[in-house]
Design a protein around this nucleic acid. Structure first.
Length: 818
RNA sequence: GCCCGGGUGGCGGAACUGGUAGACGCUGUGGACUUAAAAUCCAUUGUCCUUUGGACGUGCGGGUUCGAUUCCCGCCCUGGGCACCA
């Protein structure tokens, strides 16, 4: 065997073997345990970045491990191919988005192959392929028929110079990123999917996902935001509909001193008609971005409408204000303000000189209220609340709700923060929304036989308006039954639509319908892996879409992803790697210099998968050095495999017994790390320790040789999911005829792992003062006696009698004095 | 602003259920080999104290405990998400 490790040759050889043998092509095998391992598919942005390499290496390690455990493993790969960057690239480089995207896919597919991932490439999907998105279009028309999608007006960012809708990301400090023009909010009709109809189920479903990280479930719970409160109607002092608000704190109702409305609230718009100051305030509110983060940090501003309502209990007159921090999209677009017991209301009241009225007092004497420095927001006991005085907040909630309900002034209501999913995008590079418009403004779904609505790909893209607007062939959709002309919709779908069901299509990529029975063999995904940045939106939409497909009879399960691993970001210089920040590290250069195995090993070794990984160029070299040592260590053993049937019959030297113990402890440790903890970094560290021990081991007889052999084979088997190419080669060089991918994962022998002696720490008052070597089966009293007998321990006891001796089995003895 | 994370040597990280802080690797330093360099191998590498040994040390300030990186309270810094980036 070549004494030098040449990764390029080794990796080409392994990859050719896997390809020639179609090693990773799988089909349904009823009766055999399946394992569906999926990584979030990439957006084909041009080249792989380190985040991809990290994500896909984790998935590949898990897939290859599960395969060695005997499961029928599906690991597919595809492309989330629609999206904004293709349009930006088109403008910049004068190339059609379709062409740009497909060229990127070609290149990135080659990179993934070089990294040796065990994908079933026959299942490859690109979401920009009409064979894929036609089913999304079909499904949308089904939802339309069921009333699960609807059209209404909603707000977008409008660039008045470029005459185009901007994504939040394209609005920088309230201005269009290209034109620099002040962005305006504009309301246009858009399609929505009723995710709110599934809010309760999506919330409950989280309880049935033990394989999901708690933090992700918490984020989703908070996002769905279920709350119980009261819808209160405040009658107007003049004519007109009462003002409705939702509050979770009806116990503070007696402390309301003003009402606050969103600028888009109908009552505000009506009042602005004869109030120029108000009209200009609304204009001001209608500038800038629609992003919630921007709205939340804005200076809180407002204006009185000159309108008032009556308090539903006291009949007192309450002024109505418009405020820039109230969102029309939430609740009713109006809130009751209780400055004494809500911090934001308090700040607003301070700024505008509105009264602060305390109606809640602390339930315990030690709490204090200082309304000059801020609101008192905790629950407590009602004061200044007339008939409700003395009730605690919980009782007051019920009593006040009942009072309002009897008088038809309010109702207990469950409210969700979750809003319906707006899926319309005023973009070219997306799946066309399959509807047509009549001249009278009514809308019809495209008939099933007329699907897919194919997006024209051979276009010139010059930015600004959606090029579909000027394509008469596309726009002309024939006539309806009454011979009236039909115009095709030019909006396309949110790309989250495609990524909400691709995992199911991978099970049956050539199905003649949206899905077929194969989906039910493979689903749910057993292990889903992707970036933590998708913790809410993508994962929630996919969970929702899965239920929609279930209710259409397409899948049998409730949840799409049984286990979820959220990988941390790859950062450099403390920031997410991105082209715009110019801090990317190109994996390609590393693959070419060191080989795929080095890159894979380094990525898995540098940090546990859930943690952010701060990139550093050093360390890659170290991973490569380890592989070179491994090559020499294993490759130099050219004796044939040893088969031992009964290890207990062998006479082993002390060193051999120790090495065998280390081997089996390592097998146990790595198995646990890979299968339960997903801490590949500690798994690799354990194998490195074993290699260090092998290096020090000098075999002297047949038994020693058998132990060495077992250790080397274990190293290769344990590393094979992580660095599959070098292990493929080394397994053959160890004399095996079958490729390592067909081998079973090794089992740890508990008898071999047993220690005969233990090393315990001896503490005096919690500080380590000595180390103790004791037989593994030593009695408690003997251990305590030995600990007390230690010279240094005696020195620190200073003749004092131990008050207590704490013995933690296998760990330490703590002698407590004084 | 709101929701969810993170903070441990010069660096990446380990310590899994409250039990010996710093595994494994990187870097640095010293040495071997070499005409020399690279590669490789060996030793060493938290700070401080003259020591066999000891003090300090896990963002900061408190608390609980025989014992806290781990649990509790209050801060600071930092990453992710906030519904049209994917």
């Amino acid at each position: 065997m070549d004494p030098h490790y040449h990764p390029q040759a080794v990796e080409a050889e392994a990859q050719e073997y896997w390809e020639a043998n179609r090693s990773f092509q799988v089909s349904e095998e009823p009766g055999r345990e399946k394992f569906y391992c999926l990584c979030m598919f990439p957006y084909p942005s041009g080249r792989l970045h380190m985040g991809h390499v990290r994500n896909y290496t984790i998935g590949d390690v898990i897939s290859r491990y599960q395969r060695m455990c005997g499961r029928n493993v599906l690991q597919p790969m595809g492309w989330d191919a629609f999206g904004l960057p293709a349009e930006n690239a088109a403008m910049k480089n004068n190339v059609a988005p379709a062409q740009w995207t497909r060229e990127n896919i070609e290149y990135m597919r080659g990179q993934l192959r070089q990294l040796g991932f065990a994908y079933d490439w026959q299942r490859e999907i690109a979401t920009c392929d009409p064979d894929y998105y036609r089913w999304e279009q079909w499904f949308f028309t089904r939802l339309l028929e069921k009333g699960l999608v609807y059209r209404r007006e909603s707000t977008v960012n409008w660039d008045p110079v470029d005459q185009t809708v901007l994504a939040n990301e394209q609005v920088i400090d309230g201005r269009g990123w290209r034109s620099g023009a002040l962005v305006e909010k504009r309301r246009i009709p858009q399609w929505f999917v009723r995710i709110t109809a599934y809010a309760e189920e999506l919330l409950q479903g989280l309880d049935d996902l033990p394989g999901w990280p708690a933090q992700v479930k918490t984020m989703q719970r908070n996002w769905i935001g279920k709350s119980r409160g009261v819808l209160v109607r405040f009658p107007r002092t003049d004519a007109g509909e009462p003002l409705e608000i939702f509050t979770t704190r009806p116990d503070t109702l007696m402390g309301v001193t003003y009402m606050a409305l969103a600028a888009q609230h109908p009552m505000v718009e009506a009042a602005a008609a004869d109030n120029p100051e108000l009209a200009s305030f609304i204009d001001e509110c209608n500038r800038g971005s629609t992003a919630e983060a921007d709205l939340a940090v804005m200076e809180k501003k407002g204006l009185p409408l000159g309108i008032s309502v009556r308090h539903p209990i006291t009949d007192e007159e309450i002024p109505v204000w418009v405020a820039n921090f109230v969102l029309m999209e939430y609740g009713t677009g109006a809130v009751m303000s209780v400055p004494a017991h809500d911090q934001r209301d308090w700040e607003f009241a301070r700024a505008y000189g509105l009264p602060v009225r305390q109606v809640i007092a602390p339930a315990t004497a030690d709490a204090t209220v200082d309304l000059d420095s801020g609101a008192y927001v905790d629950a407590g006991v009602l004061v200044n609340s007339g008939p409700f005085d003395g009730l605690d907040s919980a009782e007051a909630f019920d009593d006040i709700a009942a009072y309002l309900s009897e008088r038809k002034l309010g109702d207990v209501q469950v409210n969700f923060r979750l809003r319906d999913w707006g899926v319309s995008r005023q973009r070219y590079w997306g799946a066309p929304i399959p509807v047509v418009h009549r001249e009278d403004g009514t809308v019809l779904p495209v008939a099933e036989d007329d699907l897919p609505v194919v997006l024209p790909e051979n276009i010139r893209y010059e930015g600004g308006a959606n090029p579909l607007h000027s394509m008469t062939d596309f726009l002309n959709a024939g006539t309806d039954d009454a011979e009236q002309p039909l115009r095709r919709e030019t909006d396309t779908f949110d790309t989250f639509m495609e990524s909400s069901w691709y995992y199911a299509r991978f099970a049956c990529p050539d199905a003649s319908g949206m899905l077929d029975a194969r989906a039910n063999y493979w689903l749910p995904v057993d292990q889903y892996i992707g970036g933590i940045e998708h913790a809410i939106l993508h994962l929630l939409y996919a969970r929702f879409f899965h239920r929609l497909m279930r209710d259409e009879g397409l899948v049998e399960t409730d949840e799409p992803f049984a286990n979820l691993l959220t990988q941390g970001m790859v950062l450099k210089d403390g920031a997410k790697m991105s082209k715009s920040k110019g801090n990317t590290v190109d994996p390609q250069a590393l693959i070419e210099q060191y080989g795929a195995d080095t890159v894979r090993l380094f990525m898995m070794f540098a940090a546990p998968p859930e943690q952010t990984l701060e990139w550093s160029d050093s360390g890659v070299e170290g991973a490569h050095r380890f592989l070179r040592r491994l090559w020499k260590l294993v490759g130099s053993d050219e004796l044939p495999p040893v088969s031992v049937t009964d290890w207990t019959a062998l006479q082993l030297t002390g060193n051999a017994t120790a090495l065998r113990r280390k081997t089996h402890q390592t097998i146990a440790k790595v198995s646990d790390d890979v299968s339960r903890r997903y801490t590949f970094n500690t798994a690799i560290a354990a194998v490195m320790e074993l290699c260090n021990e092998i290096n020090r081991f000098k075999p002297t007889g047949e038994g020693d040789r058998a132990v060495l052999r077992e250790a080397l084979e274990s190293v290769v088997l344990l590393l094979s999911p992580i660095t599959p190419h070098i292990c493929h080669r080394l397994w053959f060089s160890l004399g095996h005829e079958q490729a390592v991918i067909h081998e079973r994962w090794p089992a740890a022998d508990p008898a071999a792992m047993r220690e005969s002696e233990l090393r315990l720490a001896v503490q005096v008052n919690g500080k380590v003062r000595a180390q103790l070597q004791v037989p593994a089966d030593a009695a408690e009293d003997a251990i305590k006696a030995a600990a007390l007998a230690d010279e240094n321990v005696q020195r620190f006891l200073e003749g004092r009698e131990p008050k207590k001796i704490i013995l933690v089995p296998r760990k330490l003895v703590n002698i407590v004095v004084a």
